[in-house]
Amino acid sequence: MLRTRYETVFIITPVLSEEQAMDVVKKFKDLLEEQGAKITHQENWGMRKLAYPIQKKSTGFYFLVEFDATPDSILPFETEFRRDERVIRFLTTKMDKHHIAYAESGRDRAKKRADAPAAPAAEVSVEKA
């Protein structure tokens, strides 16, 4: 089956501690692997303020996962989201080629930004020595 690329953002209730939230994330990633999906990218946005209260809570633990999967593996994945009450909101989107290009360019920029500051700092310390 041809694999298409999807991107899911989901919000975990803030009541849980950090590692409990990471367990939820791990559970869904393992579920994806069982379905035969390949996770290409993941981002942990951490605790963020919600624009409006969801289930009487004003903050949430955001997590983004980008994966290649066959279309028929999405339904069980989403029913699992609906069943798990620790996840208060989720959104899965199919990624078209512009979206993929945008995501990948975003990552290159982030990586470039990550390496860039390292270089000047090194020079500064050399002079001091």
Binding site: I54, G60, Y62, R89, L91, T93
Partner: peptide, 13 residues
Amino acid sequence: KKARHIALLPYVA
């Protein structure tokens, strides 16, 4: 509309 769904933007402010 997607941003509103995942609570990045408010529906009404």
